[in-house]
Simulated assay, not measured.
Amino acid sequence: MMAHSPMTNLLIDIYNGVRKLGIPTFQKLPDADEPEPFIVLGTHFDDDLPSGKFGKSVQITDLQIDMYYPIDSRVALEDEIYQVTQVIKQSTKRATRVTSNTSQDDSIGRDVYHVVFIVTAYM
């Protein structure tokens, strides 16, 4: 049996961690009738720029995770952002940084909070 790639392992670890919060988690944007909150494990950007310390042996990945949340409570949203960030950090030792950006969004057909998490990880 072939071992998973480091990126696959990162996705599995984060997926399993976030699911523990009870938030539906998807690999692509779900149908429009899916109620908020939900999370989408999104795209990633890889960088294998040589470092002075490690040469080309280290690859840095930025994984985007999108959370869509009901617009009715900013306080509840901030608590959820904190919980998701903590679960991501605890689910993998590869993550070195988790950033988030919150905005209001209507791209899914209704007004929601859209939180974009960027997880930086060493592969």
Rank of each mutant, 00 (worst) to 15 (best):
residue 70 P to L: 04
residue 23 I to T: 05
residue 106 D to E: 14
residue 63 L to E: 02
residue 52 G to T: 11
residue 84 V to R: 00
residue 38 F to I: 07
residue 97 R to V: 08
residue 51 S to Q: 09
residue 93 K to Y: 13
residue 107 S to M: 08
residue 83 Q to L: 10
residue 44 H to E: 15
residue 118 I to K: 10
residue 72 D to M: 08
residue 109 G to D: 10
residue 64 Q to E: 11
residue 6 P to D: 05
residue 21 L to K: 01
residue 115 V to I: 07
residue 55 G to L: 05
residue 50 P to I: 07
residue 21 L to W: 13
residue 47 D to N: 04
residue 33 D to P: 09
residue 76 A to Q: 12
residue 39 I to S: 00
residue 82 Y to N: 11
residue 99 T to R: 11
residue 47 D to Y: 04
residue 22 G to Y: 15
residue 50 P to V: 09
residue 66 D to F: 10
residue 8 T to L: 04
residue 11 L to Q: 08
residue 29 L to H: 12
residue 3 A to I: 11
residue 18 V to W: 06
residue 56 K to M: 15
residue 105 D to L: 00
residue 48 D to W: 06
residue 102 T to G: 06
residue 63 L to M: 05
residue 37 P to D: 04
residue 17 G to S: 04
residue 65 I to Q: 00
residue 34 E to A: 11
residue 88 I to P: 00
residue 95 A to T: 07
residue 46 D to W: 03
residue 120 T to K: 07
residue 17 G to M: 03
residue 6 P to S: 05
residue 7 M to T: 04
residue 101 N to D: 15
residue 46 D to Y: 03
residue 22 G to V: 05
residue 40 V to Y: 02
residue 89 K to Y: 14
residue 73 S to H: 07
residue 110 R to E: 14
residue 44 H to W: 13
residue 99 T to N: 06
residue 105 D to A: 01
residue 81 I to P: 00
residue 118 I to N: 11
residue 11 L to T: 09
residue 117 F to G: 00
residue 6 P to G: 03
residue 65 I to S: 00
residue 121 A to D: 03
residue 35 P to A: 08
residue 14 I to H: 01
residue 122 Y to A: 10
residue 43 T to V: 15
residue 105 D to V: 02
